[in-house]
Nucleic acid binder design. Structure first.
Lengths: 158, 158
DNA sequence: GCTGAAACTGAATAGTT
DNA sequence: AACTATTCAGTTTCAGC
């Protein structure tokens, strides 16, 4: 997990795998200009060193009946570490919550959730607030159009 | 691309592939309780029908020198369709912007970006605002702790 | 540290129930 | 619609450079 040096070939491998995690090793090898065996070793090294943290299928939310994307800004009236831990646990185990971040600024948490309908939003928010024993303030933002969504990071291929 | 029926086995397949996109077909077949060939057909069908939209390696942002995660709320003073299109194009082609959504509420756009440092944030915001010919207001939120980040959707496996 | 070949493992296809 | 057997493609290992 120590930060390893990433050379040009490693970065190219990451670039390809970010776009298509199921590309055959032989094809990946062609794209980076090596034979299959060193590429296999490099991929394994990137996995073991924690540079690649996983391979995930991306599924269309509409197909699973979750057309609603909502962001919630949450502010807690008390900011004890114990309280934050309680909320963290609740959000981690709630699969409708795709993202959750502790932020600096006008509120404490930014939460991203995919839901079936607005009725589910009210239900989810009530469920979260029920778990924390102090008043909390929330602002929600319903996404009208998804311009872009992904996790792929830019790579310098020079 | 028409919404297909997803039976119990399809949902189980999606559940497994969301967690590990590179699981061997034979292992996937075991987990869902079928032999490899029908599972292969089902996966292909899920891909062709648009339920599975891709397979992506998840890369550690720290390893690529992007320790800073920032959310930006953007409000445009004029809301013409042409202006929105111009901004959309700019954000789509900016790889440091991982997400961008048009929202309803107190601002117009919510943007998520991964950056190397605060200096890069100032530079990115200036670059974006330079492209739009009207005043815009922005609020930014720096992430202090990432509790959860993913794209995996919940699946009913019953 | 990469190449290339050989051995092995997993995937795709066709034919059967 | 799924299973089995066969064929084919992809991956891993290892000797040589």
């Amino acid at each position: 997990m120590a930060t390893p040096e990433l050379d040009r070939i490693d970065r190219k491998i990451l670039d390809v795998l970010q776009r298509n995690a199921r590309v055959p090793l032989t094809e990946l090898a062609q794209e980076v200009g090596l034979s299959a065996s060193p590429v296999s070793e490099r991929v394994r090294r990137l996995e073991r060193s924690g540079v690649i943290t996983g391979y995930h299928a991306h599924v269309n939310p509409q197909a699973l009946g979750r057309p609603l994307l909502v962001f919630v800004e949450l502010t807690l009236s008390s900011k004890s570490g114990e309280l934050f831990q309680k909320l963290r646990d609740e959000l981690l185990h709630e699969p409708r919550v795709l993202e959750c971040h502790l932020v600096s600024g006008h509120f404490d948490y930014l939460i991203k959730a995919r839901l079936s309908a607005m009725s589910e939003y009210r239900e989810l928010l009530a469920q979260i607030l029920r778990k924390i024993p102090v008043p909390a303030q929330s602002n929600s933002y319903v996404v009208m159009e998804e311009i872009k969504e992904g996790l792929a990071l830019p790579l310098d291929l020079s």
